[in-house]
Design a protein around this nucleic acid. Structure first.
Lengths: 248, 248
DNA sequence: CGCTTCATTGACGACGTTCAAGACATGTGG
DNA sequence: CCACATGTCTTGAACGTCGTCAATGAAGCG
């Protein structure tokens, strides 16, 4: 139910024919396999398979042994941590070409959940781990991507540790606009469609959904953002949004 | 002056003779070179040098080109990000054997500052980058360490996003106790010496120094921790501290 | 057309911040 | 050795932002 209602508003990843050959893969240029030669690609081709998860489905569970790692082909995945009393924090948001899963550790320290319908390019963990050792191109890229994730996580520490609700929301919209492609809304402007509910945005920002909602309303009133629907928004002036995010 | 007053209370890293040969290095087993063979080590030996920074000194500056990367031999380094209006957040705390600096990007996205007196094993960035490409043992370990840092950063996102002041402080003390060696205080118990001021702890926890101080006092009153000095503390029951950190 | 989920808005209260004063420790110079 | 300065830490009181509780509205789906 949840999955289907979300599918309708998802917007980011229209279901589409999925490439079975790496050479035709939409994330070929930026995924973990980006630096692989055609020859290395054929090896990868042999151990990969595609899996889809409907919105809301659990992909990996914290504390459990994970049998696979994967690249995100389409959709958005959220990584969450939960306190014993149920408080939830989203600790990572993964977009197409991003990599899911630990290579060495077999237990995940967070849940991975499909925020939208998701298509993954899946590798069994063991074979992938072995391949990684013998394929510098693969390991180079994975190191690069992991470092980028670390940078992003540290940027978010600043957001959660020091920014106000308004600044957090602006930071989120900005981050999202940068990492997702705009949807052409038929007019002369670009619009973005949020893959998350207000609750999920709150979980990402360390706030409550009420506070997120209030700040959305306020920013709309200030002309910082414009809403076509509750999920679809347009930013008239990115620099101005950036200023809000930086508290300047 | 600041540096010297801090040196007096530092406690973590008494100045000591520093190994010049890798085989005698105190962090040999856990640093980025951990998986290197003796042969590979001799190559590293050739491009390394030691540098010391007194407490408070800047090691790397955000936005500036960094000429080197390094392993921490002794001391504690804090990574900080600063908002335009001066708000500061510590986004990482590095201990002996941890690795500093970007290998690929030449500009840092945060400041690195010596929290105590620090000794680094420094490598020029270019030669190290080249060596990294040709030395799987080095790259394997760096990938592993980067993934661990990412895990730690995500754990901290939960702390900053969802935990109360009390829970944050407990999480910090716990983390610190785990990553640093206890100081034998001559009795039957282990004591830990904090390498950070109250202000710095607050910068790490997304709080103010007053809130940190109040929570310290309260936890002492509750018998969760005992203070020998303002910097030196003892934990009678780690499990109890863990419960406080988890909000249970 | 009713059910469910999602989003908005309001009233009130709590937790942490801000502002301020004072205590404590350490180092310096007379 | 004491007076004084400096940096650190503690404690108090008032304030404000955000969380909690609650009601209402809007949208999609059976």
């Amino acid at each position: 139910m949840v999955a289907q209602s979300m599918t309708a508003q998802r917007g980011l990843d229209e279901p589409r024919a999925i490439a079975t050959r790496c050479s035709a893969c939409p994330i070929r240029e930026r995924a973990v396999c980006a630096y692989c030669s055609d020859q290395e690609l054929t090896v990868l081709d042999g151990i990969k398979s595609y899996r889809t998860f409907t919105a809301g489905r659990e992909i990996l569970a914290a504390g459990e042994t994970t049998p696979f790692v994967a690249s995100i082909v389409t959709g958005v995945v959220k990584l969450t941590k939960t306190l014993p009393d149920g408080r939830v924090q989203i600790v990572g948001l993964l977009f197409p070409s991003d990599f899911i899963g630990k290579v060495r550790d077999d237990v995940a320290s967070y849940d991975a959940i499909a925020a939208t319908d998701v298509t993954l390019c899946v590798f069994q963990r063991r074979p992938f781990g072995l391949l990684l050792k013998n394929t510098p191109a693969l390991e180079n890229r994975l190191l690069e991507m992991t470092m980028d994730e670390l940078d992003a996580a540290r940027e978010w520490l600043l957001v959660l540790g020091r920014k106000t609700a308004r600044e957090r929301l602006a930071s989120f919209l900005l981050m999202f606009a940068r990492r997702s492609k705009p949807v052409d809304d038929g007019g002369k402007t670009d619009a973005y469609t949020l893959p998350l509910t207000r609750t999920e945005i709150a979980e990402y920002l360390g706030l409550t959904l009420e506070t997120v909602s209030r700040q959305m309303t306020k920013m709309r009133g200030d002309g910082i953002i414009q809403f076509q629907t509750t999920r679809r928004f347009h930013v008239p002036d990115m620099d101005r949004l950036q200023d809000v995010a930086d508290g300047t």
